[in-house]
Simulated assay, not measured.
Amino acid sequence: MSATPPTSLTSMPDSPDRADRLTFSARCTALFDFLKNTGIGEWRAMMANVYANALDALASAVSASSSANAAQASANAAQALVNAAKWVPGAYTAGQAVWSPVDLLTYRARVDLAASSVDPSSDRPNWAPAQDSGLPAQRITANTSAQVGLHYVFAAGGITLTFPASPAVGDRIGITNASGTATCLVDPNGKKFKGNSTVMKLDDLAASAVLRYANSTDGWIKQ
């Protein structure tokens, strides 16, 4: 938060008193001179300062809310992994976490599965290792502006994920195509994917990766 304290206000001159005729005229003149030359300017500056501080406080509140939402998403994702059940043949919903009795690792369903019959460790088109990214997953079904530190699971076709306009070196974002289509897009938002500034199309139905921002030349690269 970058709020700045307001400057102090100059004390006003004595107010004119109609009962004191000897000083009334001089005090009126002094008061109006003060208002014209000093008071009004200082009050306007103070109100501008209060307004700027209010805007800063609002921005801080929005940022705090975004951080809280990201923290909650991370906590929810961690809780889902902790509560993951052992995989058995059956139906699963996209994003559901299970652990494999073959390698004891945790996996998430890429898509809704009416009848999963192959252990997740051997079924990469339908299951993604939860340990791939270490980032909390967020399913999206509409155009979305990405936040750093999340793993976005495309759960519908024809949608675009727009990456941040001003990433920092080392920022990470995960993407997984669970839409069952080759129509989803990832927009670098003025940056690059492996040196290419064009919008990336997820034409691999089993695409899953974590992208890390390397530099302005290469942009986002696969981790």
Rank of each mutant, 00 (worst) to 15 (best):
R21F: 11
A168W: 02
I159T: 02
T23D: 03
P120T: 11
A80V: 08
S122I: 01
V102L: 07
L105D: 11
P13M: 07
R124W: 08
A165M: 05
H151Y: 10
G149P: 07
V50K: 07
S216C: 07
V169Y: 01
D204V: 07
N215T: 10
T144A: 01
T141V: 12
A3R: 14
P167T: 13
S66M: 03
D187L: 06
I140H: 04
F24Y: 14
A3N: 11
V50Y: 07
A64Y: 05
S166A: 13
F154P: 00
T29W: 01
N126R: 12
L105H: 05
T93Q: 14
T162K: 06
R212K: 10
M46W: 09
V153A: 04
T183N: 07
K192N: 09
A146W: 08
I173S: 06
V169H: 04
F24D: 03
V50P: 00
P101W: 04
D33M: 05
G149I: 04
T144C: 02
A71M: 12
G41N: 12
I140T: 09
N196Y: 06
T162Q: 02
A207F: 15
L58G: 03
P167V: 03
F193L: 04
Q138V: 15
A146M: 07
A156P: 04
L58D: 10
S11W: 00
N143E: 04
G157I: 00
A3D: 10
G158R: 11
T106W: 07
